[in-house]
Design a protein around this nucleic acid. Structure first.
Length: 263
DNA sequence: ATGGTTGTTACACAA
């Protein structure tokens, strides 16, 4: 049975982490790798390094300094119109089709420190992106196999954080965010494939802060997601949270999450 | 309650 594997990873600078990407690709062989926070302009993206990893096809949505997303693939990519989800026109969405599957790679704003849309415009921005996501996926035609992946900067469930109680008022796990993300998922009829294959109460984390001893404290959050439309989700036979890269030299604060689908 | 780190940028800001 043929398969396609897709990974998502907030890389926090693609140029600093090119060696980590090469090691991950060599060890795990994703067919498609979706990156967030590449932090470079399109012309600064290290396409040659990706070619030598076997990821010859790339779709880069870059900008100077911050944000930026990219999709790199072993298979040819058809670039498609990305939904307009960011009111500030930041580089946060890449959209392609590969092997007959539509792939949306998203980087939702982190939202700043204070979970108050009045006093914190970054939080207001995050909620606006969520609202646009809900409207877009509610209206999107259903039936085509689709993946929505990326750093959604929200840990939706109580077992997606190290302490539900202590994070209820912390940006990434507040009710307005978790309920907002659930509304997006329902609007698009998506399945959270990580939880479909690894149900509660197993703890699942994809991010640990740079501050403090991440490994000992293990105060993680599941911010990075792979969602699939129902027919595709049924064909997901593997999901992995690949923790090793968090322990490599000068790591990203996020780890890769990879899913495999029979096709 | 506070401070703890990283990357890009330019004399902070975003995460």
């Amino acid at each position: 049975m043929p398969h396609i594997s897709i990974a998502t990873w907030n890389i926090n600078s693609v140029r600093v982490r090119a060696d980590h990407i090469a090691r991950f690709v060599s060890e795990h062989q994703p067919d498609v790798l979706c990156l967030q926070e590449i932090k470079c302009r399109n012309e600064e993206f290290p396409s040659k390094a990706f070619s030598s990893m076997g990821l010859r096809y790339v779709n880069v949505i870059g900008q100077k300094g911050s944000h930026g997303v990219a999709i790199a693939s072993k298979h040819p990519l058809q670039v498609i119109q990305a939904p307009t989800l960011c009111p500030r026109s930041e580089a946060r969405v890449a959209a392609v089709a590969a092997k007959g599957i539509t792939i949306h790679n998203l980087y939702v704003p982190a939202g700043g420190e204070e979970p108050d849309p009045v006093g914190n415009d970054k939080f207001a921005h995050k909620l606006e992106v969520l609202a646009r996501m809900k409207a877009h996926y509610a209206a999107a035609p259903k039936g085509r196999p689709t993946l929505l992946v990326g750093d959604l900067n929200i840990a939706p469930g109580e077992h997606d954080v190290w302490s539900h109680k202590q994070l209820l008022n912390v940006v990434s796990h507040t009710p307005v965010e978790t309920e907002g993300l659930e509304a997006v998922r329902a609007a698009g009829d998506f399945v959270d494939v990580a939880r479909a294959l690894k149900p509660d109460p197993e703890k699942l984390y994809s991010w640990w802060s740079y501050r403090g001893d991440w490994k000992t404290a293990n105060r993680g959050r599941r911010l990075d997601h792979i969602w699939a439309t129902p027919g595709l989700a049924e064909r997901c036979d593997r999901i992995e949270f690949i923790g090793a890269p968090r322990g490599w030299d000068r790591p990203s604060d996020h780890i890769p999450v990879m899913a495999r689908f029979s096709i």
